[in-house]
């Protein structure tokens, strides 16, 4: 199985898990928000197996612990492998960190994302060597650099550029 296929399988698995979370939104959200141990998959997923067979126990882990094995720019990279809400939570970014309040949380603005991840120019510099084009420095202007066009925190991310271009990005 090539890396891409493996990612697809992972996505399918995790996507289902996310769907389950979303479909039981209030309870699951509460669980996510109140979980003191986001590394303990069973807190939300119960008996559903969300990790590959033989994976080391993750209870008590934070994102840095995950990255120790799932190093960036390797086939095991964490980004693209788990949903962004998971990686946020594992980094200590809870629902309230982004949404401030608990009832009917709305979509995030790009400004909110950039408050932690920005500025956009810095992001562009970090991806300057991406081929065949830098996704964070589009000639189409800032409206094509809205984070959530590609990066979906609570669902599978999307290669927005691929609507028109043959840009084969793996989008975190």
């Amino acid at each position: 199985m090539c890396g891409k296929d493996r990612r697809r399988v992972l996505w399918a698995t995790l996507g289902l898990a996310v769907l389950l979370v979303v479909s039981a939104a209030p309870a699951a959200t509460a669980l996510l928000m109140h979980s003191d141990d986001p590394g303990d998959c069973a807190t939300c997923h119960g008996d559903t197996q969300v990790l590959s067979p033989g994976h080391v126990p993750t209870a008590g882990m934070k994102r840095d612990d995950c990255v120790a094995c799932h190093a960036p720019d390797t086939p095991l990279a964490l980004l693209s492998a788990i949903p962004l809400d998971h990686s946020h939570l594992l980094s200590g970014v809870t629902c309230q960190t982004c949404h401030n309040q608990t009832e009917a949380p709305g979509p995030m603005s790009t400004e909110q994302c950039l408050a932690c991840h920005g500025p956009l120019e810095d992001l562009a510099a970090r991806t300057a060597d991406t081929h065949p084009a830098n996704p964070h420095s589009t000639p189409h202007g800032p409206t094509f650099a809205e984070c959530d066009l590609c990066h979906k925190v609570h669902q599978e991310s999307e290669n927005f550029c691929a609507q028109c271009h043959d840009f084969d990005y793996s989008v975190p």
Binding site: P139, H140, G141, P142, T143, F144
Partner: peptide, 13 residues
């Protein structure tokens, strides 16, 4: 200068 229509659309927006 922008090399595309974004050089007008951006300022319009």
């Amino acid at each position: 200068a922008a090399g595309s229509g974004s050089g007008i659309i951006g300022p319009q927006l």
